[in-house]
Computed example of a mutant assay.
Amino acid sequence: MIINNKITLTLLTGVVLTSCSTSIQTQKIVKQAQFQTDLLLQEIPKVDNKKGVLVSPRTVEHGQLVLVPSKDWTSGFFPGNLWYLYELTKDEKRKAEAEKFTAKIEKEKYNGNTHDMGFKIYCSFGNGYRLTGRQDYKEVIIQSAKTLITRFNPKVGAIRSWDHNSDKWDFPVIIDNMLNLELLFEATRLTGDSTYYNIAVTHANTTMKNHFRPDYSTWHVIGYNPKTGAVEKRNTHQGYSDDSAWARGQGWAIYGYTMCYRYTKNPAYLAQAENVAKFIFNNKNMPKDLIPYWDFDAPKIPNEPRDVSAAAVISSALYELSTYSKKEDYLKKAREMTHAMATKYKSAEGTNKGFILDHSTGHWPKNSEIDVPINYADYYYLEGIVRNNRIKKHESVVQ
């Protein structure tokens, strides 16, 4: 069946904005973000890149700026940051920078060795298409969706995440994969072909069935038998333990099901997002400033690293969720998180090689990217700023 080619993205614009004493000083935030981004653009050419394969800044480790090739799952976030800054400032210089860094990862549209197509392509080309309407960007989005669905296994009912770690899982599916579904929903909207939509819905349903514990916390990795579809393992690869609640994983969950509700209006997805939010904010280990520790069950809380990237993902999701659900004051929580990031967790001007935020945790079990700036924290933080601005203007929170 071909679904309506004009899936509406218009959200309720008549929502009553919750009064909130927390002030989001957008002008000040954007000024700091621009200053830092200009510094980062100056630092990028200083990195040894003789082969020219490094295309995007990812983090700072041991005082050094780390650039990654286009195949890295984070390569699309910096171009996305530039697109958001262009949207916030209307500065044509930002647009030119965004186009330059976006072009560097176009070849990924044919890379079928990864599930991270949405992170790479939709954060970059997706935002570029949304803001410019460039038809070549549209074609990249569609081709990327075609590539991504080659990883779908109908027996499992999900898109395969990793090809590595084959010694641990036959068919791993990670909660992060939920965010790559936006690319598929958009491909149906752009083409009218429901194949992408149907695969996205099937994946979301399979994940909702198997990834969540009774308290609506999520495992990180579910290992399936690719021949039978049976669940073989439940693990939390980047968390403290298999039974723990890895903070960013909870962020991917609330963001993913809020986004799925946007496209489908399936009340089960809305309820799932609400339940994940309940777990997050009722958790005894959630700090007062709402910037979570890297894992809600980390053993040395409060002496554990925070994960600002988790806060950025959660807060961006909450801005959107606030337009669908009145069960909690999600808008107030989103603004509180944004205020904390903008004041207590931002990079001081001129530091961190130009990243906007600090104090994220990438992969604690591997002792990788601990208490450092990371590009996806900056991305979802800026996305949240854009969404907050739209809500204040009574505009559709996602355009």
Score class of each variant (00 low, 15 high):
residue 55 V to S: 06
residue 56 S to V: 00
residue 56 S to E: 02
residue 57 P to W: 09
residue 58 R to N: 10
residue 59 T to W: 05
residue 59 T to P: 00
residue 60 V to L: 09
residue 60 V to Y: 08
residue 60 V to A: 04
residue 60 V to M: 09
residue 60 V to S: 02
residue 62 H to V: 14
residue 62 H to L: 12
residue 65 L to P: 06
residue 66 V to M: 07
residue 66 V to D: 05
residue 67 L to S: 01
residue 67 L to T: 00
residue 67 L to W: 01
residue 68 V to C: 10
residue 71 K to Y: 13
residue 71 K to F: 12
residue 72 D to C: 00
residue 73 W to H: 01
residue 73 W to R: 00
residue 74 T to D: 01
residue 75 S to L: 01
residue 75 S to H: 00
residue 75 S to W: 00
residue 75 S to G: 03
residue 76 G to M: 12
residue 77 F to D: 01
residue 77 F to C: 08
residue 77 F to R: 07
residue 78 F to S: 09
residue 78 F to P: 00
residue 79 P to M: 08
residue 80 G to P: 13
residue 80 G to S: 13
residue 80 G to C: 14
residue 80 G to E: 12
residue 81 N to C: 15
residue 81 N to R: 11
residue 81 N to P: 02
residue 82 L to E: 10
residue 83 W to Q: 07
residue 83 W to M: 08
residue 84 Y to D: 11
residue 84 Y to A: 03
residue 86 Y to R: 04
residue 86 Y to A: 11
residue 87 E to G: 11
residue 88 L to K: 14
residue 88 L to W: 03
residue 90 K to M: 09
residue 91 D to E: 15
residue 91 D to Q: 13
residue 92 E to L: 03
residue 94 R to N: 09
residue 95 K to C: 05
residue 95 K to H: 04
residue 96 A to P: 09
residue 96 A to L: 12
residue 97 E to T: 03
residue 98 A to Q: 06
residue 99 E to Q: 07
residue 100 K to S: 07
residue 100 K to N: 05
residue 101 F to D: 05
residue 101 F to M: 06
residue 101 F to I: 08
residue 102 T to K: 08
residue 102 T to D: 07
residue 102 T to L: 03
residue 103 A to E: 06
residue 106 E to M: 06
residue 108 E to C: 05
residue 108 E to M: 06
residue 108 E to Q: 14
residue 109 K to S: 02
residue 109 K to T: 11
residue 110 Y to I: 13
residue 111 N to A: 06
residue 111 N to V: 14
residue 113 N to L: 10
residue 113 N to C: 11
residue 113 N to G: 15
residue 113 N to M: 14
residue 114 T to K: 04
residue 115 H to Y: 09
residue 115 H to Q: 03
residue 116 D to W: 01
residue 116 D to K: 02
residue 116 D to G: 00
residue 116 D to H: 01
residue 117 M to L: 13
residue 117 M to G: 07
residue 120 K to Q: 10
residue 121 I to A: 12
residue 122 Y to H: 14
residue 122 Y to E: 06
residue 123 C to I: 05
residue 124 S to F: 14
residue 125 F to I: 02
residue 126 G to E: 03
residue 127 N to E: 02
residue 128 G to F: 03
residue 129 Y to T: 06
residue 129 Y to Q: 04
residue 130 R to W: 06
residue 130 R to M: 10
residue 133 G to C: 11
residue 133 G to I: 06
residue 133 G to E: 10
residue 134 R to E: 15
residue 134 R to A: 15
residue 136 D to S: 13
residue 136 D to M: 08
residue 136 D to V: 03
residue 138 K to C: 12
residue 138 K to I: 12
residue 139 E to K: 11
residue 139 E to G: 02
residue 139 E to N: 15
residue 139 E to V: 14
residue 140 V to A: 08
residue 140 V to E: 02
residue 140 V to L: 07
residue 140 V to T: 10
residue 141 I to H: 02
residue 142 I to F: 04
residue 142 I to D: 02
residue 143 Q to P: 01
residue 143 Q to N: 13
residue 143 Q to H: 11
residue 143 Q to M: 11
residue 144 S to L: 06
residue 145 A to Y: 08
residue 145 A to G: 09
residue 145 A to N: 02
residue 146 K to I: 05
residue 146 K to T: 04
residue 147 T to S: 04
residue 148 L to H: 09
residue 148 L to Y: 05
residue 150 T to R: 15
residue 150 T to K: 07
residue 150 T to W: 04
residue 151 R to T: 12
residue 152 F to S: 07
residue 153 N to F: 14
residue 153 N to R: 15
residue 153 N to K: 14
residue 153 N to A: 10
residue 154 P to Q: 14
residue 154 P to H: 12
residue 154 P to D: 09
residue 155 K to T: 15
